[in-house]
Design a protein around this nucleic acid. Structure first.
Length: 438
RNA sequence: GGAGGCGUCGCCUAGUCCGGUCGAUGGCGCCCGCCUGCUAAGCGGGUUGGGGUCUCAAAGCCCCUCGCGGGUUCAAAUCCCGCCGCCUCCGCCA
């Protein structure tokens, strides 16, 4: 949620943000009205309640005196009590209805506020999915024609290596499911260990978070808005399967006030990720590029709002460091306004080169959510100036399945074997090459 | 799954039986003063969070906040109902 003070003082800034996202700017004015109503209702309830409190306190004092009073004083005090009591029922009724109006107004304002996406960073490129800006291209793409062999895609390579079993994935769980087997399974563990080592080496606290969360965590991170259709919900228990460790890592400090001196707090989580992939029928149906479940190592950072932009660059730098170490060519894009999630003010993706598709595809994503998630989850910082919301940021270190796709395809050899980049070898028992079975 | 206990403003804690003088006691910690070769001790004061109002801002004032949500009542930390969490014991189980 955004700051209502910003909304009141500079509504046009929020309207413009909504326009750039391709969302409804009208919510801003509805919310302003609702907020006005809420404040009015708050004031009239407060006045009535104040009156009631004063009267109630007066009665309390009288009752106290009555208990200690002598027999001859008692009737006089008793009369005073009864006089004070007159009309209290009526007042109580008025308080009650004012309270009802207040909570209705509050609920309406809250509902509108929850619909509003984060205010976009003005530096983010404006436009839709295709209007991203390429920040940088890194690495050298191989010329397989020059090397003299036809590119195999990750499905073929995975089968040759005995790393991947998609047919059985479908048999057991349906489409978009898979088994990682043999070196495939080892590859996941290697990638994960490598990522965790990189993060802990940079001061992150490693975390294995719950992948099943209550509605508050899902709502708080902003995934129940337009992204709701992609979230798995367990009806019987009113729980959600997370689509990313961002959710439990963000909710980790919900309802807490963190000492400013303890910031930034950086966590690296390893968790399964579940995505319904609604609306992507027919897209990426081959292989494990787009699946309903995969494992991921995610960075998450809590920091002071004024440091968020710099922190965002750091997360991006660590993501790049990881893909550099895998020796995979990639580019960095600055995601356009219309393609940001509800929580993000700005987002950078790393897109790895996928030889079989001859194009760059998203493998990581880092978002600066500024204070948006923190407000929803009531996570604040305390410094010398008092208490205020902090900023949250997240970034992928490795989404295992997509990393495996990129790795197999980019490092394949003519005979179907796959070269292991040096950085990964320590996590694969020193192996330099993955070779086809039999 | 069954039985019992507990949840108070950073931590601990009083109050809950018998509703009002509790907008919540005391200790620890922390902050600011005083005192003092230094430190410690001592003395005095302050110390939940949110909303509203006023203001350039602050101070002030008002409302809410005793796990959460309802209810009873003129009045709820206190009584009633539901929920959540933690602990203990039993059962079951990776």
């Amino acid at each position: 949620m955004i700051d209502l003070k910003i909304l009141r003082e500079d509504p046009e800034r929020v309207r413009e943000s909504q326009r750039r996202r391709g969302e409804d700017p009208g919510i801003v004015d509805e919310l302003l009205d609702a907020d006005e109503m809420r404040r009015t209702a708050e004031a009239s309830f407060g006045a009535l309640r104040s009156e009631q409190n004063a009267l109630s306190k007066h009665i309390g004092h009288l009752q106290g005196r009555l208990k200690k009073a002598s027999d001859e004083d008692r009737p006089a005090i008793q009369a005073e009590v009864e006089q004070a009591l007159a009309g209290t029922s009526d007042l109580a009724e008025r308080v009650k209805s004012a309270d009802a109006r207040r909570s209705a107004a509050e609920a309406e304002a809250a509902e509108l506020l929850a619909k509003l996406s984060n205010v976009i960073d003005t530096d983010a490129p404006v436009g839709g999915e295709d209007d991203f800006v390429v920040v940088e291209e890194v690495g050298t793409r191989r010329d397989f024609a020059a090397e003299g062999f036809a590119v195999r895609d990750h499905v073929e390579l995975g089968e040759l290596l005995g790393a991947l079993d998609i047919e059985r994935g479908a048999k057991v769980s349906g489409s978009r499911f898979y088994y990682l087997t043999g070196v495939g399974a080892l590859l996941e563990l290697a990638l994960v260990n490598h990522a965790i080592a990189l993060a802990t080496g940079n001061g992150f606290t490693p975390v294995i978070p719950p992948a099943l969360v209550k509605p508050a965590a899902m709502e708080g991170t902003g995934f129940l808005g337009q992204a709701a259709e992609n979230v798995y919900r367990l009806e019987a228990d009113d729980m959600y399967l997370v689509g990313t460790a961002e959710v439990p890592l963000a909710a980790y400090h919900s309802d807490e006030i963190l000492d400013a001196g303890s910031l930034p707090r950086r966590y690296v989580g390893y968790s399964p990720c579940f995505r319904r992939e609604a609306g992507s029928h027919g897209k990426d149906t081959r292989g494990i590029f787009r699946v309903h479940w995969f494992d991921k190592v995610e960075m998450f950072s809590y920091c002071a709002p004024e440091d968020a932009e710099q922190e965002h660059r750091r997360l991006l730098a660590w993501e790049r460091q990881f893909f550099d170490s895998l020796e995979i060519p990639y580019r960095v894009i600055d995601v356009a306004s219309g393609d940001l999630g509800a929580s993000a003010a700005r987002k950078f993706d790393i897109e790895a080169w996928i030889p079989s598709q001859e194009r760059y595809r998203e493998v990581t994503s880092t978002s600066n959510c500024t204070e948006f998630q923190a407000r929803r989850l009531r996570i604040r910082l305390r410094d010398d100036d008092g208490v205020r919301p902090l900023a949250t940021l997240n970034g992928t270190l490795v989404a295992v399945t997509r990393a495996i796709v990129a790795l197999l395809e980019n490092h394949q050899q003519a005979d179907g074997s796959v070269r292991v980049p040096a950085a990964l070898r320590p996590y694969l028992g020193g192996r330099e090459l993955l070779t086809p079975l039999a």
